[in-house]
Amino acid sequence: MNIPSLPPPVTRDKNALVLFSGGQDSTTCLAWALTHYNHVETVGFSYGQRHAVELEGRPRILEKLRQFSEKWNRRLGADHIVDLSLISHLSETAMTTEMEIRVMENGLPNTFVPGRNLMFLTAAAMLAYRRDLNTLVGGMCETDFSGYPDCRDDAVKALQVALNIGMDTRLALLTPLMWKNKKETWQMAFDLGGQKLIELIVSETHTCYIGEHNRLHEWGYGCGKCPACLLRKRGFMEYQSEKKPI
């Protein structure tokens, strides 16, 4: 299925709402938005996730990003937290319940939370409508990912069409990481904010599914064994091995 993207709305101001979890991908996307948009707000979601520690790191990351440059500080606006705890009541998964991470009979990992990203984007669209923001930026990716169907480009494009029809808007859903692997995501972070941003992502962001935030590796905090940690670690090692000397 190939659903065409709607063109970005033509407005006087370029503004965006970034789905910002406090993880590697969303932090990179936030840096990307701060580079390309005049006004940027952020939204995080509390949905009963095992790795709720990611929410605790969000304010620190936002404050440190403000210190990168006066331009980023000026562009970074309000932060929002939305309670979507009903997600954990609707679906029992390894992302929301203490259980062993494994592959299910349908081939998907049991960390898959059905409809989670669709709900995130829908809630973000409602917030963007109220805040008069015309672009949503999310870290969805179908290159290096765990096979989640709602991370796919077709799913995001289809939802963009549905949201714009249902809300009578011209909202653009952008996914800067959609066709990047984790090595390329690390490289993108460096291109946006240099070694300073790489160090911030390593020391402050959280990706580990089980919420392990006590062990700091050269690629960041995590258990080092869950799918999210393995992807992040592998991408970092590949990025480091191919990094060109300054």
Rank of each mutant, 00 (worst) to 15 (best):
A228V: 09
L200C: 09
R74Y: 14
D153G: 10
G139W: 01
A125S: 02
A162M: 02
N214E: 15
G193F: 02
V103F: 00
E199H: 12
V161Q: 08
H89T: 12
E212N: 06
E204N: 06
T175K: 10
N15M: 05
K71Q: 14
P114H: 05
F112W: 13
G193C: 03
E70P: 12
P245D: 06
L34N: 11
S146E: 02
R215D: 15
N110A: 07
M178T: 09
F145L: 15
S69H: 00
E92V: 15
Y221D: 06
G115R: 13
G220K: 02
P114D: 05
M104G: 08
M237I: 13
M167K: 01
L84E: 08
L173M: 05
M95P: 06
E92Y: 12
F120C: 04
I198D: 01
P114C: 10
D168M: 09
D168I: 11
D144I: 00
F120L: 05
E41G: 07
E218S: 04
F68H: 08
F112R: 01
N38P: 13
K243G: 06
N164W: 00
S91C: 15
P8H: 12
K243P: 10
G139T: 03
D153C: 07
A155V: 12
L118V: 08
L177D: 12
H51P: 14
T122H: 01
Y47C: 10
E98R: 12
R66I: 09
I201F: 05
V43P: 03
I210A: 08
Y148P: 12
H36D: 09
S69P: 08
Y239Q: 02
G220H: 03
N110D: 04
L19A: 01
P4Q: 10
L19N: 00
I210Y: 07
Y221L: 10
I81N: 10
S85G: 11
T169N: 02
A52Q: 03
V82P: 06
V202P: 00
P9A: 13
D153I: 10
L216N: 12
R50T: 11
N164F: 05
Y221V: 14
T135N: 15
P245G: 11
F68E: 01
A228F: 02
L65W: 10
E184G: 04
L19F: 04
F45I: 08
M1D: 14
L76F: 10
E41I: 02
F120V: 04
R102Y: 11
P176T: 06
R74F: 14
D168C: 07
K182V: 07
K14T: 14
E100M: 11
G222Q: 09
T97Q: 11
G211E: 14
N2H: 10
Q67N: 10
F145I: 15
Y129Q: 02
L55F: 11
M1V: 12
D83Q: 15
M126W: 00
D191E: 13
L174V: 06
D132K: 13
R130S: 02
T96K: 08
E98Q: 14
Q187F: 00
A78N: 06
